[in-house]
Design a protein around this nucleic acid. Structure first.
Lengths: 343, 343
DNA sequence: GAAAAGACCGAAACCCTTTTCGTTGCGTGT
DNA sequence: ACACGCAACGAAAAGGGTTTCGGTCTTTTC
C-alpha cells in the first residue's frame, strides 16, 4: 500500500511535510489550505492533494497559539448525575457546526478547591470561554471577574449580578403546568414538591400560584415540601388522598415525585388521568416514558440553554458585550397520558 | 486595589510579563517555576511571587507544542443518554490527580460521518489519546490503526482484534447474579431480558446458565427477549407469573426491566423478596434506589473501566505496549431489598 | 521594445514555553 | 596575581502554523 502511514504510531503530519510533497513553501501551503486568494489554482490543487494523501490535520494548538482562539470551551460542573449537564453540553457542542467547537467537561464534584484546580487547568488549556453549570437553580458563588475569558453561568445563576447567567424559567414552568391542568378541566389541584431550600421548588410554587390566582382558584392544602424522591412522591400522595379525597390533580415538583404519585394513585385504585391528573417537571426521558400512564411534564429546554451559552461566549470574543444579570429560558409543555387520556 | 487585573477581559498573562516583573529572563523564570535546580533560592522566590501576583497560568498549548504532550484525552461516544459514558468519563478524569488530565467529550450521535468529523477535531487538538465509548456492548467498527495516538475502546469492543478493548464482563455478571439468587435459596429462576441482538443480553444468559448448571438447576421456561424497557418487564413478568406460578426469582436483564417486574409482582400481590426475588443489571442509581423494595443489582464498575482506559493511554505514551484484544472488568454485586429482606 | 502592473510565491517574524548551551561573576587554590 | 571550577543566569532555537512583506515572473500597455 504505497503512501500508507506506518501502522500503529505514525507521528502526526505537519504542514512542512505537506509543503515538501507539494513542492511549495509552508507559507504557500498554508494559504492554499485556508482558501487565501494569493495562490494559483493549480498550486492549490497540488497542495490539497498532498494534504489529502498524507491525511494532514492542522495542529489547532499551533493555530491557537498564534490566533489566540482555540475553538474550545470549558464546561465546569458539579452535577455528578449529569442529568442536567449533558443536554447543556450537547447544546453547546451544536451551537456551531459539528466539530467546530469542542467542549472540555470537568466535574468539580461539588468541591471548591477542586473547582479551582479545574479552573486553572482549563485556563491553562486556553479555552475560549467558560460555561459553569450548577446542580440546582440556586445562585452559586461567582468564579471571579478577572478571568481572561468570558464566563456564562447556566442552570445555577451566579450570585454576582455582574455575571451573565442563563437559567430555566421555573416560574413560567409552574404557571404553564397549572394552566395545562386547568385547561384539562381540573380545579382541585394539590402540590407535592421537593426540598424547600431549592429555588426551583419555590419558583415553581410562585408560578403555580399565579396561574391559579388568574383563574380564581386556590391550591388544595399546603404545599408539601420534602425531598426530590419517588418515595416522597408516594408517601405525600397517600397523605393527600386521605386528607383531600376530592382532589383531581397533583402538581409534582419533579418527574420522580410524579412517578411516586402515579404509583400511589394506582395502589389506591384512582384512575389516571380519569380521576386524577398528574404532571411533573424536567421531562426526564427515562422517567416520563416508563411510567403508567406516561407522564406529562414541563421540559426546561436545557439544550437551548447550552446552545445560547456557547453562542454568547463566542459573540463576546468577537467584541460583543457579554451582558449581565439572569436571563431565563422559556419552558415547554410536553403532554402525555397522565393528564390527557390517549387514543 | 493595587496589582489587580482589570475587570472583565484582562488578557492572559505570559511568562514574559512574569519575568519582567521579577527582573529576570524568561528562561530563568521558566526554570524557577518548574523547579529546575539552576536557579538561586532568592531568585526563585521573586519569580514565584511575581507569578502569584499576576495570577500567571502557563500556556499548556505552548507547552504541548514543544513537549508533544497535551494532557488531554478525547472521549468519543455515541451514547446520548450518558448513562454509561459519564461514569467512564469520571474514571478517566480521576486516573491521575485532579486537573492533571482533561477530557474532551464528543458525541457523534451515532452518525459515522459525524464521528469522522469529531475524530478529526480531536486529533487537530492533539489529544494524547482516544477513548471510544459505544452505547452497547456489541463490537463496533474500528476507527482505524494509522492514528498518531493510542486508542482504547470501552464498553463496546472494537471489531478488530488488534485494537485494545475494555468491556464489562457480562458473563461473570450473569453468573454472579444467579449465584446470589441461589445463595438466597432460590431454585425456580426465570429470566426476562432485552433485545436479543445485544451481546450484553446473550452474555448474561450464558453466565446465568453456567451458574445454574453448576448448581444442577435449569432456567424456568425460555429466556424472554424483547426490549430494555420497564413496560416489557411488567408485561413479561405478568406472562411469567401466569404460566409458571411457582417461580421464586426473576433474573432481569436490566434495572429497568427489573423495575417493571417489581411493579407486576406488586400488582399481583406477590411479596418481594418473600415470594419472589428480583435482581437487575447496571446498578443505575435512580432506578435501584427508588423502587419498592430497593433493587439488588450487578454493578459493571464502569468508573474503573474509565480509569484503566486512561491509564493505558498514558502508559502507551510512555513507550509501554498498548496491548490488544478484549479485556473484561469484573462486576460487583450490590445487595438490596429485592433479594434479601432488610431490617 | 521597454516599463508598469499584476499574479504568484517564499523568507521571516510571531505566538509562548522549554531546554540547551554559552557567558558571567565569584570564590578558591597555588 | 593567575587559572580554575562552579553556581547562576541569559540568548537562542525549537515546536507548527499564519501573516506580512518583498521579490520574481508573466502579462499588458504605450
Amino acid at each position: 500500500m504505497a503512501g500508507r502511514d506506518q501502522v500503529g504510531g505514525s507521528k502526526a503530519v505537519t504542514l512542512t511535510e505537506v509543503a515538501r510533497l507539494a513542492g511549495v513553501s509552508v507559507a504557500t501551503a498554508s494559504k492554499a489550505l485556508n482558501g487565501r486568494s494569493q495562490v494559483a489554482a493549480r498550486t492549490r490543487a497540488r497542495v490539497l492533494q498532498a494534504a489529502e494523501q498524507l491525511s494532514f490535520v492542522p495542529n489547532t494548538l499551533a493555530q491557537g497559539l498564534l490566533v489566540g482562539r482555540t475553538g474550545t470551551v470549558g464546561l465546569l460542573t458539579s452535577d455528578l448525575q449529569g442529568r442536567f449537564v449533558l443536554p447543556i453540553l450537547m447544546g453547546a457542542e451544536d451551537a456551531f457546526g459539528a466539530g467546530r467547537v469542542n467542549v472540555f467537561l470537568c466535574d468539580a464534584r461539588g468541591d471548591t478547591i477542586r473547582e479551582q484546580h479545574q479552573l486553572k487547568a482549563l485556563l491553562s488549556r486556553r479555552v475560549d470561554g467558560l460555561i459553569v453549570v450548577g446542580s440546582r437553580t440556586d445562585s452559586r458563588p461567582s468564579v471571579g471577574h478577572d478571568l481572561p475569558v468570558p464566563v456564562v453561568y447556566v442552570y445555577a445563576p451566579s450570585d454576582d449580578p455582574e455575571d451573565l447567567s442563563l437559567v430555566p424559567d421555573n416560574v413560567a414552568a409552574g404557571r404553564l403546568a397549572v394552566e395545562h391542568l386547568i385547561s384539562c378541566g381540573r380545579s382541585r389541584i394539590a402540590h407535592v414538591t421537593g426540598d424547600p431550600s431549592y429555588a426551583a421548588a419555590q419558583d415553581r410554587v410562585t408560578g403555580a400560584r399565579a396561574a391559579l390566582d388568574a383563574a380564581g382558584l386556590e391550591l388544595v392544602g399546603e404545599v408539601m415540601y420534602s425531598e426530590w424522591s419517588e418515595r416522597w412522591g408516594r408517601d405525600a400522595t397517600a397523605v393527600l388522598l386521605e386528607r383531600y379525597p376530592d382532589i383531581d390533580a397533583v402538581l409534582c415538583g419533579s418527574d420522580q415525585i410524579a412517578r411516586g404519585a402515579l404509583d400511589t394513585a394506582r395502589d389506591q385504585g384512582r384512575k389516571v388521568p380519569g380521576d386524577i391528573a398528574v404532571i411533573g417537571f424536567d421531562n426526564w426521558d427515562e422517567m416520563v416514558t416508563n411510567s403508567r400512564p406516561e407522564l406529562t411534564s414541563i421540559d426546561p429546554n436545557l439544550q437551548l440553554l447550552g446552545r445560547s451559552a456557547a453562542q454568547r461566549v463566542f459573540a463576546a470574543l468577537d467584541g460583543e458585550e457579554l451582558g449581565r444579570g439572569v436571563h431565563t429560558q422559556a419552558p415547554r409543555l410536553v403532554i402525555r397520558g397522565s393528564t390527557v387520556a390517549r387514543r
